[in-house]
Amino acid sequence: GKMTGIVKWFNADKGFGFITPDDGSKDVFVHFSAIQNDGYKSLDEGQKVSFTIESGAKGPAAGNVTSL
């Protein structure tokens, strides 16, 4: 299901970062391709987001990332 969290950091040049889930679980990798907006796909440190957990090739990653 949907989770919420805070963006820990995001490197716009490399197109990835990490989200710290509100439930205290392990930080989740986020790739820019998972960001659900029409414009420039980037996130800001400290931004609140909702997301799902998808299993990627390198382990769990955030999917369906939407800013709240």
Results as ranks from 00 to 15, higher is better:
Lys26Tyr: 10
Ser42Ile: 13
Ile53Asp: 02
Phe29Asp: 01
Ala57Cys: 06
Leu68Pro: 07
Asn11Asp: 14
Val49Lys: 00
Phe32Ser: 11
Phe10Val: 04
Phe10Thr: 02
Val30Ser: 01
Tyr40Glu: 13
Gly59Ala: 06
Leu43Tyr: 03
Val65Tyr: 00
Thr66His: 11
Phe29Glu: 02
Thr66Ile: 13
Val65Cys: 03
Gly17Lys: 00
His31Asn: 03
Gly5Ser: 00
Ser55Leu: 14
Tyr40Asp: 12
Asp22Arg: 04
Leu43Thr: 02
Asp38Cys: 08
Thr52Leu: 09
Phe18Lys: 04
Asn64Tyr: 10
Gly59Asp: 04
Asn11Ala: 09
Asp44Met: 14
Ile35Pro: 02
Ser55Thr: 14
Pro60Asn: 11
Phe16Ala: 02
Lys26Ile: 12
Lys14Trp: 11
Asp22Lys: 05
Gly5Cys: 01
Lys14Met: 12
Gly46His: 06
Lys41Phe: 09
Gly1Trp: 05
Ser42Glu: 08
Ala12Tyr: 11
Gln47Lys: 06
Ile53Gly: 03
Val49Gly: 00
Pro21Ser: 05
Lys41Gly: 08
Val65Gly: 01
Phe51Ala: 01
His31Ile: 04
Pro21His: 03
Glu54Leu: 09
Gly15Met: 04
Lys58Asn: 14
Phe10Ala: 02
Gln47Met: 13
Glu54Ile: 13
Asn64Gly: 08
Leu43Trp: 04
Ala62Thr: 03
Gly46Ile: 02
Lys14Gly: 06
Gly39Tyr: 10
Tyr40Arg: 13
Gly17Met: 01
Asn64Gln: 12
Ala62Trp: 01
Asp44Arg: 12
Asn64Pro: 02
Asn37Ser: 14
Gly56Lys: 10
Pro60Trp: 06
Val28Leu: 13
Val30Asp: 00
Ile6Tyr: 12
Ser42His: 15
Gly5Met: 00
Thr52Val: 12
Asn37Phe: 12
Asp13Ala: 15
Ser33Glu: 05
Gly56Gln: 13
Val49Asn: 00
Lys48Leu: 09
Tyr40Ser: 15
Gly63Ile: 12
Thr20His: 10
Ile19Gly: 00
Pro60Gln: 12
Gly59Ile: 04
Trp9Ala: 03
Lys41Met: 08
Asp38Thr: 11
Asp23Val: 07
Gln47Cys: 04
Gly24Trp: 07
Ile6His: 11
Phe16Lys: 02
Gly17His: 00
Met3Trp: 08
Ile35Arg: 02
Ile53Ser: 04
Lys41Leu: 10
Pro60Met: 13
Ala62Gly: 03
Gly46Asn: 06
Phe10Arg: 01
Lys14Val: 10
Ser33Cys: 05
Lys26Asn: 12
Ile6Leu: 09
Gly15Ile: 02
Asp27Ile: 05
Thr52Gly: 04
Gln36Ser: 13
Asp23Ile: 06
Ser67Asp: 12
Leu43Met: 05
Lys48Tyr: 12
Asn11Glu: 05
Asn37Pro: 08
Ala12Glu: 11
Gly1Gln: 08
Gln36Ala: 14
Thr66Trp: 06
Phe32Glu: 09
Leu68Thr: 11
Gly24Phe: 08
Ile6Pro: 01
Ala34Arg: 06
Ala57Leu: 13
Tyr40His: 14
Val65Phe: 01
Asp38Ile: 08
Gln36Met: 14
Phe16Ile: 12
Ile53Arg: 07
Lys8Glu: 02
Ser42Gln: 12
Thr4Glu: 07
Ile35Ala: 03
Asn37Trp: 10
Trp9Asn: 03
Gly15Asp: 01
Phe51Leu: 03
Gly17Ser: 01
Gln47Pro: 01
Val30Lys: 00
Asp13Gly: 12
Gly56Pro: 04
Glu54Pro: 02
Ser25Gly: 13
Asp13Arg: 15
Gly46Arg: 05
Lys26Thr: 14
Tyr40Gly: 10
Gln36Asp: 14
Ser33Gln: 08
Lys2Gly: 11
Leu68Glu: 11
Gly1Ala: 09
Gly46Leu: 05
Phe29Ser: 02
Asn64Cys: 06
Gly17Val: 01
Gly59Arg: 10
Lys8Met: 04
Asn11Pro: 02
Ser55Phe: 11
Lys2Met: 15
Asp38Gly: 11
Val49Met: 02
Ala12Asp: 10
Phe32Arg: 14
Gly46Lys: 05
Ile19Asn: 00
Gly63Leu: 12
Ala34Tyr: 04
Thr20Arg: 12
Gly56Trp: 08
Gly24Lys: 09
Lys58Pro: 09
Met3Cys: 06
Leu68Arg: 08
Val7Tyr: 01
Gly63Ala: 15
Thr52Cys: 05
Ser55Asp: 11
Gln36Thr: 13
Thr20Glu: 09
Asn11Val: 05
Gly1Cys: 07
Thr52Trp: 08
Phe18Met: 08
Asn37Met: 15
Trp9Phe: 10
Asp44Gly: 14
Thr52Lys: 05
Asp44Ala: 13
Glu54Asp: 12
Ala34His: 06
Phe32Asp: 03
Gln47Trp: 08
Phe32Trp: 14
Thr20Tyr: 08
Lys48Thr: 08
Ala12Leu: 10
Asp23Thr: 07
Ser25Tyr: 07
Gly56Thr: 15
Ser33Pro: 03
Val7Met: 03
Val49Thr: 02
Gly15Ser: 03
Phe51Glu: 00
Ala62Ile: 02
Ser67Met: 15
Gly1Met: 09
Phe29Lys: 02
Ile19Gln: 00
Gly5Asn: 00
Asp23Cys: 06
Thr20Ile: 15
Gly56Asn: 13
Lys8Ala: 08
Val28Pro: 01
Lys41Arg: 13
Asn64Val: 07
His31Ser: 05
Ser50Asp: 05
Ser25Leu: 07
Asp27Lys: 04
Asp23Ser: 08
Gly46Ser: 05
Asp22Cys: 08
Gly5His: 00
Lys14Tyr: 10
Leu68Val: 13
Gln47Ala: 12
Gly24Met: 08
Met3Glu: 06
Tyr40Pro: 13
Gly1Lys: 04
Phe18Glu: 03
His31Tyr: 05
Ile35Cys: 04
Ile6Lys: 12
Ile19Thr: 00
Gly46Val: 02
Asn64Thr: 08
Ala57Met: 14
Lys2Glu: 13
Gly5Leu: 01
Ala62Gln: 01
Gly15His: 05
Pro21Trp: 04
Val7Lys: 00
Met3Asp: 04
Phe29Ile: 03
Gly24Ser: 07
Thr66Phe: 05
Gly17Glu: 00
Val30Thr: 03
Val7Cys: 04
Ser42Asp: 08
Gly1Tyr: 07
Trp9Ile: 04
Ile35Glu: 02
Ser33Met: 09
Asn37Ala: 14
Phe10Pro: 00
Ser55Ala: 15
Ala61Ser: 11
Gly15Arg: 05
Gly46Phe: 06
Val65Arg: 01
Lys2Gln: 14
Asp23Pro: 03
Gly17Phe: 01
Thr52Ser: 09
Tyr40Ala: 12
Pro60Leu: 14
Gly17Asp: 00
Asp27Met: 06
Ser55Ile: 14
Phe51Met: 03
Phe16Val: 06
Ile6Glu: 07
Thr4Gln: 08
Lys8Arg: 11
Phe29His: 03
Lys58Leu: 14
Gly17Gln: 00
Pro21Glu: 02
Ile35Leu: 10
Asn37Tyr: 12
Trp9Cys: 05
Thr4Gly: 05
Thr4Tyr: 10
Val7Asn: 00
Thr52Glu: 13
Gly59Met: 06
Gln47Ser: 11
Thr52Tyr: 11
Ala61Phe: 15
Leu43Gly: 01
Lys2Tyr: 15
Asp44Lys: 15
Gly56Leu: 08
Ser42Arg: 13
Lys14Ser: 08
Phe10Cys: 02
Lys8Thr: 06
